[in-house]
Amino acid sequence: MSVFKNKLTLIGMIIILLLLCAAIFAPVLTPHNPNTQCLSQALKGPCSDYPCGTDEFGRCIFSRIIYGARVSLAIGIAVTAVSAAIGVVLGMAAGYYGRAVDEIIMRIVDIFLAFPGLILALVVAGLLGPGIGNVMLALALVGWMGYARVVRGTVLAEKEKEYIETARSLGANDLYIMFRHLLPNVIAPVIIMASVGIGYAILAAAGLSFLGLGAQPPTAVWGSMLSDGKTYLQTAPHLTIFPGLAILVTVLAFNFLGDGLRDLLDPRLKDKAWNRG
């Protein structure tokens, strides 16, 4: 059980590290310029020259996937960072101040949770117009509620403890108590949520770019590569297979990592060993 999980966590971490390297060193690692068109080479299957084949403009799919990792990871990390920051601040305020502040913030959370987030993101990003920034904004807007809930719960439990009283009696102000004493307690659950959250954000961003939102041509983005490729599904399926595989593997890696971290940081959620077969 734990071996299975640990192995997957390790695999997840390795894949994420490889992806980060690929994103950073993309110019060195790619055999071709991702945007160079070579119509004579269009729609070629995988070969020694083009490991994943070429698209309808003769661009190297492998190179485009590697460059696409930059966009995907950037969106995933940025969206998650912003969501988590909003969630932590609001959750901490709700938990710490309680009463009206808590009531208002948690009602806002309820309202946001009462609507399918991705649809809201689609509407917002779609109306704001194409562009990576708008997609990030839209996804961050619908992704913070989970963090707020968890942080609020942790803060509620923690703020009653004696060391907080002590800190207050020593004259620490609210901000100091929140960031110096309460913040460390919420880091573990937030990290667990964030590692799964990055995967989810990448998936959502790919979905939006599949629909034509987000980064615009000729920027290499996994979602729009898939969308472009679907026209050639019959004749050149590699156009859809490889970018999709890249999304799957990336999201899977973040999910592995999240699962592993949860077991590591939150022993309560560990599978129990004592079950009857």
């Binding site: 599949f210 599904l233 999910n255």
Partner: peptide
């Protein structure tokens, strides 16, 4: 695990590729 990480638009295309194409 696989299903939870699978982009549904990709799955849709793969299904089309297999069952339709």
């Amino acid at each position: 695990l696989l299903g939870a990480s699978m982009p549904n638009f990709w799955l849709a295309l793969l299904l089309i590729l297999l069952f339709s194409v």
